[in-house]
Each structure stands twice: as structure tokens, then as C-alpha cells.
Design a protein around this nucleic acid. Structure first.
Length: 560
RNA sequence: GCGCCCAUAGCUCAGCUGGAUAGAGUGACAGACUUCGAAUCUGGAGGUCGCAGGUUCGAAUCCUGCUGGGCGCGCCA
């Protein structure tokens, strides 16, 4: 339980007790306590916490909210609490003003917990899976994948910090139509590179990377596939190229700071018969019918607009069929919650996927799909298309080269998944110092610099007692400590709302408060007590910044 | 035509399950370094929260309709 939660509980307790006492004394009438909110007011003058309970009771108690507030306040006992003062304001808010010394406890706590400060047991070890990127293995990673990677990994990090048992997973679409086309494309390039004039498939993969991959193969293994049976040749070329491609994707993601627990192959679902078994189960339960030679799944039963093919007329299951089997497999692995991050262009798939889970007897609520709006790339004021077919995309590798990993990750995480992103490459390149990530990192570097100098001057990082913290009374100090105290709850809130972008907001606020503190309060002063306490505060801030940045995969440099 | 997402300061975006006077960054303007990092700080300027209704003590937030933009509606994935 965080310090802040403790305080909130204390206030709620005395507040609710007061309301009940008033009721028992006959001063107020209501059946049950309303679902009120205790929140931190936006305006400082409104106190440290505010409750809206009086307004919510107004109708039932048939009394003016301010009058109700007055009655409740009369019954509040503030002995043995941190409450200094209570005021009634506005339409009937009850505002609590606290003795701010309650905050000091957080500083030794941060130092003691170090890298762990901010983490909590909120998730109680529940198994959660986050599946993200799952890019087509026939190509390289583009900007959409980059956003998904930054978002998914940060979300996983936030969930982990909030106490969930998180597994990061990449689903490899190594089966189906696209692999057929991939094989045809590879074969055509292979033959062309060896001097044979063969046509390139119209809907094949035109990217340069396919040519490069085949050139490498030729350099390594020569022309031994020329005389082979065509089907076998394509199979071997695909096997080789997929391995190379997936390995590249893995390496690129690792450079981006993203590591997966599981790389899950679609092909294994076909090989193990899970796809066929899943279709059979659905058929048995009457969700599947035959029409025009194909098998259709009645997704309309679950609110979809039209039914969906699961097995084509040629007997080959569709991607959708494999995906149902895949999600069934996820739940069979015991995840209490499954989170997918998909591009907005897949949104039509969400309802039928949930419907399929329901048909299989799972609770569709356990599956959450985060739809991420697409990234539009601008260069020279013009939109770049991200099609894999044309080969004119900008890759994640190029992005990292141009703006750096930290800036790229921070930039992607900063925005809510719902917002469309225009990524201006020229801007990112030419004015990268404008990126807020530097602001936060600068605060951390500054902190490290102060701590280094303190060390050089022979000032020990002291074991500071709570009493010594009381010298911290400047408003800049108090607001900074308050922010530090908030970290565990901020992380929980980001986890609950699946909103990792809140962490960048927090990081920026924290950095800003530190810069303000730095400007107003000299850390390395000659007064030992004050210096000790401020060094402690400085160090605690540094720990928070570092922990938050690491959560979202951004480094916290000690020098810049 | 149907479905999903979005519309907040000149620009890019926050705004936690409905709360009090809607916030940052950036751009422009005016200031602050003989002392811990000026990649910083301090000011003011900038808003019919797309439009119109509705629910509520109270709406940027919830409901309905409309306008404008993105995406989707395949025996592709």
C-alpha cells in the first residue's frame, strides 16, 4: 500500500464515519453511502484532497449540498490524523488540508527500494499476455510496427511494475497465402539473379530486401536449387529466407529494447492439428456451415455484419481460422487476460475474434484488443506510403539511425494509441533536441552531476532521518516530494487503463518540478542539515526518473 | 450505405472511472548565468473544447443527431 493510498484511506474513513454519525444523530437521511470520489484538486488553494460526497447526497437527503457538507464536517474527528484543516467550498466540496510532514516518509523509502520504487503488488501475480508487433515475417519492420513495439513493450513494462505476471509474445504468420507469394517471389528473384529471364509475380513482394536475401543465399550456397523440383525449391527458399527475416526482426526489436518471452509460430498450429480441431469443435457446436464449397463461421451470431470463411473452397484454412486456434491456445496456457495490439486497419477483426472466443466458451471480456491508429510519415511535406509491396517504406532501423532509440520510443509512447500520428522525419532529424525526452534525460543528468560533485566535495550521501527531512519546506520541495510519492499509484493507474502514455506525462512533470526545485533551492549549501535533506531529495528524484524511463524502454544517461 | 477511431491554443498533443478558473510542449514576445549542467528557469500573450440538442447540482468527458477527417467492410493477412 502506497503512502498516498494510506492517506486517502485515512481521510475516507473519518469522512464516512462522520456521515454515518450524522445519520445516526438524525441530522442526515440516506440509505447508503454514495459512490463518491476523493481526489486531488487541480487548484492548490482547494487543499490536498477533496470529496464530492455532499453533492451526491443532496437529492436523497433533500438538502442543499453545502448544508450537508457542514453537517458532515461537524462530525469529523481529526484527532490522530494528518488533517490540519477542513473547508467547504464551491457547490459543496469538502476540502482537506493536510500537515505535509506525512510526505517525508517517502524519501527514505525511495532510497531503500531503489530500482523497485514504484512497483506494487496491485496485479497480484495474475498472468497477462501482451501480444504485439507480430509483423509479417516476409518483410522488415516499418513505422506502424515501431509504434506497436514501443507501445506494447511499455504496456507490458507498466503491467509488470504493477504486479502482473506478464508474458510478451510475437506471433509469426509463417503460413498461408502470403507465404505462397513469398515463395514465388523468392524463386523469381533467385532465378533472375542467376541470369534466367523469368517474370516476377504481379502481386509478389517487390522489396529490395528479397533480392538481397537471395543474393546472400547464392553467395553462400550457389545455384544448387536450380535443378530442383519447383515445389521443394520454393519450400527450401522459404525456409531459408524466413529464418533470415525473423532473425533480422528479432535483432531490430532487441536494438529497440524489446525482448519477447515467446515467439509463436502459426505453422505449429497447423502441424499439431489445433486448427483443424478448433474448426471441428465449432462445427460440432453448430457455428459452422457450408456454402459454395467453403466453410463459414457464423460471426453474425455475435454481432458481426457478415459471416466469415474459415476454410476456403480449396480446403486451406484462412488466417482467421488459424487465429481462432491461436487465441484458444493462449487461453489454454492459463492467461487470465490477453491483450493484443493491432493496427486500426484490423479493427473489423475484433468483433469476430471475440465472438469466436465466446463460441468456444471463453469470456470475451478476457480478451482486450488495443487498436492503434496508423502512423503517417511525412518527408519534405509529403506523405510516404508504408506499403511493403512498393518498397518505399521507412524501416525501424532507419528511424533509429535518424532519431535514436530513446527519442523514437518516447515519441511513440507519448501519444495515446487512439491518436493518429503524423511523423515528420525532417523535423525529427533536424530538431531532435525539441523532443521532450531530452528534457527528462537532462534532469537526470543534472541530478547525477550534483551527486558526483557532492561526492567530490566529500559530502556523504547521508542516512537521513525523518526529522532531518523537516527542513524541506519550500513549496518547490514539497510539490516535488508529492510527485515522488505518487509514482506507485501512477503506475497502477497506467496499468488499469492500459495507458502507458501516462508515464511520459508523469516523467515530464517530475522533471519539470525538479528543474523548479533546482532553480529555487541550492542543493550543495553550507548548512549540513539542509544539504543532507536536499541531497536525499535529489537522489530520490533521480531514482524515480530512472525507473520511469526504464519502464518505457528509454535510457537514463548520467551525462549528456 | 454500414462499422470503428478522431476533432481541445498558430502547430503537436495531455486532460485519471463526470468536478471548482481546461493544461503541457513547440512557435512568437519580454526577462534571468562571477556559485550545484542555460539541453534550464521566470513572465505575460494565445480557447465558441467541431456544431446543435439532451442527461446532471456540475459536461472537453456520458447520450442523440449533424459536419469534417482517418481506417475498414476479400475464399488477403
Amino acid at each position: 500500500m502506497s503512502l498516498v493510498r494510506n492517506i486517502e484511506n485515512q481521510i475516507k474513513k473519518v469522512l464516512e464515519q462522520a456521515a454515518i454519525e450524522a445519520q445516526e444523530a438524525g441530522a442526515l437521511t440516506f440509505a447508503a453511502l454514495p459512490d463518491y470520489v476523493l481526489e486531488v484538486p487541480r487548484e492548490k488553494v482547494h487543499g490536498d484532497f477533496a470529496a464530492n460526497i455532499a453533492m451526491l447526497l443532496a437529492k436523497e437527503a433533500k438538502m442543499a449540498p453545502r448544508k450537508i457538507a457542514e453537517i458532515i464536517v461537524q462530525h469529523i474527528h481529526t484527532q490522530h490524523t494528518w488533517i490540519d484543516k477542513i473547508e467547504i467550498a464551491g457547490p459543496g466540496f469538502i476540502n482537506f488540508y493536510l500537515n505535509h510532514t506525512w510526505l517525508y516518509e517517502v524519501l527514505p523509502l525511495v532510497i531503500e527500494q531503489g530500482d523497485y520504487y514504484g512497483r506494487s503488488e496491485f496485479g497480484a501475480g495474475k498472468k497477462v499476455q501482451v501480444e504485439f508487433v507480430s509483423a509479417n515475417p516476409t518483410g522488415v519492420l516499418h513505422m506502424g510496427n515501431a509504434r506497436g513495439a514501443a507501445l506494447g513493450d511499455s504496456l507490458a513494462g507498466v503491467l509488470e511494475a504493477a504486479g502482473f505476471d506478464v508474458s510478451r509474445e510475437f506471433y509469426i504468420n509463417d503460413a498461408g497465402n502470403q507465404i505462397e507469394k513469398f515463395g514465388q517471389s523468392l524463386e523469381a528473384r533467385y532465378l533472375q539473379l542467376l541470369g534466367h529471364e523469368v517474370p516476377f509475380p504481379e502481386d509478389g513482394y517487390h522489396g529490395q530486401d528479397i533480392i538481397d536475401t537471395m543474393q546472400t543465399l547464392i553467395d553462400e550456397k550457389g545455384d544448387k536449387y536450380l535443378t530442383m523440383d519447383e515445389a521443394l525449391r520454393r519450400e527450401l527458399l522459404v525456409k531459408y529466407a524466413l529464418e533470415v527475416k525473423i532473425d533480422n526482426i528479432r535483432k531490430t526489436l532487441e536494438e529497440f529494447g524489446v525482448y519477447y518471452d515467446v515467439w509463436f509460430s502459426e505453422q505449429t498450429l497447423h502441424d499439431s492439428g489445433e486448427v483443424a480441431k478448433t474448426i471441428a469443435t465449432l462445427k460440432n457446436d453448430g457455428y459452422i456451415y457450408e456454402k459454395e464449397g467453403a466453410l463459414w463461421f457464423q460471426t453474425t451470431k455475435f454481432g458481426d455484419e457478415k459471416d466469415e470463411v474459415v476454410v476456403r473452397g480449396n480446403g486451406i484454412p484462412t488466417y482467421f481460422a488459424a487465429d481462432i486456434a491461436y487465441h484458444k491456445n493462449k487461453f489454454q496456457r492459463g492467461f487470465e487476460r490477453v491483450i493484443n495490439i493491432w493496427g486500426a486497419d484490423h479493427h473489423g477483426h475484433v468483433a469476430r475474434m471475440k465472438g469466436a472466443m465466446e463460441a468456444l466458451g471463453y469470456d470475451p471480456e478476457q480478451l482486450t484488443v488495443i487498436l492503434m491508429q496508423l502512423v503517417r510519415l511525412f518527408r519534405g511535406g509529403e506523405i510516404l506510403r508504408m506499403s511493403k509491396r512498393t518498397g518505399t517504406y521507412v524501416t525501424l532501423n532507419e528511424l533509429m539511425e535518424e532519431v535514436g532509440r530513446d527519442a523514437a520510443r518516447y515519441f511513440f509512447v507519448m501519444r495515446s494509441p487512439d491518436s493518429q500520428m503524423d511523423f515528420d522525419l525532417d523535423l525529427a532529424k533536424s530538431q531532435s533536441a525539441d523532443n521532450p525526452v531530452f528534457y527528462v534525460q537532462y534532469a537526470h543528468a543534472r541530478i547525477c552531476s550534483i551527486l558526483r560533485q557532492a561526492e567530490e566535495m566529500g559530502y556523504e550521501l547521508p542516512q537521513v532521518s525523518l526529522e532531518e527531512c523537516h527542513v524541506l519546506s519550500h513549496p518547490a520541495e514539497i510539490t516535488l516530494i508529492r510527485k515522488i510519492a505518487d509514482l506507485p499509484d501512477e503506475i497502477i493507474s497506467a496499468a488499469e487503463n492500459l495507458a502507458p502514455h501516462r508515464m511520459t506525462t508523469y516523467a515530464h512533470d517530475l522533471a519539470s518540478l525538479f528543474h523548479g526545485f533546482y532553480t529555487n533551492c541550492r542543493v550543495l549549501t553550507d548548512e549540513p542539515e539542509l544539504r543532507h535533506a536536499r541531497l536525499l531529495l535529489t537522489k530520490a528524484t533521480g531514482i524515480c526518473i530512472k525507473n520511469v524511463l526504464h519502464l518505457i524502454g528509454v535510457s537514463a544517461p548520467e551525462r549528456m
